[in-house]
């Protein structure tokens, strides 16, 4: 994994921006707390135990979703692919809600359910992969609708007391991640490193599978690795924060517009950019109608849907 001067510069710039955004996000909330100079013990506690874990969770989850989006896009050869559109988020929600029904008061069961659900969703989409990339995307969209219907069914059966949790989880909720923050950051870092390591092969895959193979890429093996990475990262992100849509779609695309389509730049910038975007979305969600909060998924969808439609129009 060789990083050129340009890429190191890119990383340095993004680390700088991320630090700045985290600093601001740490400061704002119910009231402004200067992160460098908190005035009481309670402020210290609020900074490090309420705001920081939430901000770092947002960063890791946003980065992971953006990386997974970029991977699904190259995997399917279609820039409109992303976990949410492919129904993977929906199947994870089905898994989580099913677990809620079977083991009502267990957060662990819910996380496991989400994780298994994400994998089932990916397997379902991929069992159509022989159809080719375009139809695979179509299959994903149809499956997403299917998971949505199953979800409605489960919610109708769910005891009322679990509904709140199910709703919160489906709209994305960063306030109480069931996975520890350090593990999310570790996964983020590993995912980014794997991505950068594979970036040259991924670039070749942009030329189509045959060209990639002729240029010496083991396409089958690469596809398997990518699938594993993208689905594992999606499953972990969804488990941690519920279903947060459109980060995986919007961020890689913006980064391609800004930094070109070669993957070293796309993946590095998406991993940071996705994290930064989700921190900003979540900070807005928790402050805009303070003291009440909005679900973060509402904000990302509100930003994401217009951009998605714009991309569709531009391609037509």
């Amino acid at each position: 994994m060789k990083l050129q001067k340009n890429e190191l510069l890119l990383i340095a710039a993004f680390v700088g921006i991320a630090m700045f955004v985290i600093f601001i996000a740490l400061g704002v909330g119910e009231h402004w707390i200067n992160p460098l100079n908190p005035s009481s013990d309670m402020e210290v506690l609020i900074l490090w135990e309420i705001r920081l874990p939430r901000i770092l969770t947002a960063f890791a989850v946003g980065g992971m979703l953006a990386l997974a989006g970029a991977w699904f896009q190259v995997l399917l050869g279609n820039p409109l692919a992303e976990p949410y559109v492919l129904g993977v988020a929906g199947s994870a929600a089905v898994g989580a809600v099913s677990a809620m029904m079977l083991f009502p008061d267990s957060t662990l069961a819910m996380s496991m359910g989400a994780f298994i659900g994400a994998w089932v969703g990916i397997a379902a989409v991929l069992s159509f992969s022989f159809l080719g990339a375009t139809r695979l995307l179509l299959a994903g969209v149809v499956l997403a609708a299917f998971w949505g219907a199953i979800l409605m069914l489960l919610m109708a059966l769910l005891p009322e007391r679990s509904l709140m949790l199910a709703y919160a989880w489906m709209m994305g909720d960063l306030s109480s991640s069931s996975l520890p923050v350090w593990s999310l950051l570790l996964v983020w870092l590993l995912a980014l490193m794997c991505g950068v390591f594979l970036s040259l092969s991924l670039d070749k895959l942009l030329l189509g599978e045959r060209h990639a193979e002729a240029l010496g890429v083991h396409v089958q093996r690469l596809r398997l690795i990518l699938l594993f990475l993208a689905s594992a990262v999606t499953a972990i992100a969804v488990t941690a924060a519920g279903t947060i849509g459109f980060v995986g779609l919007v961020v890689p695309h913006l980064m391609r517009l800004l930094f070109g389509s070669l993957h070293k730049a796309v993946l590095i910038s998406s991993a940071f950019g996705g994290g930064i975007l989700l921190i900003m979305a979540d900070t807005t969600a928790r402050t805009i109608i303070s003291p009440a909060e909005l679900p973060v998924g509402v904000l990302t969808a509100m930003i994401g849907v217009p951009i998605f439609l714009y991309l569709l129009l531009r391609r037509a």
Binding site: G77, P79, L206, G208, H211, A214, L215, G216, L257, G260
Partner: peptide
């Protein structure tokens, strides 16, 4: 094999916005 054979086949997809220079650099 990729150092023995060069293959010129179908036109690669253009969705992702590769430039001419980047495409050549990949080869």
């Amino acid at each position: 094999l990729s150092r023995i054979f060069t293959w010129q086949g179908d036109l690669p997809p253009s969705e992702f916005g590769l430039t001419v220079g980047q495409r050549l650099a990949l080869s």
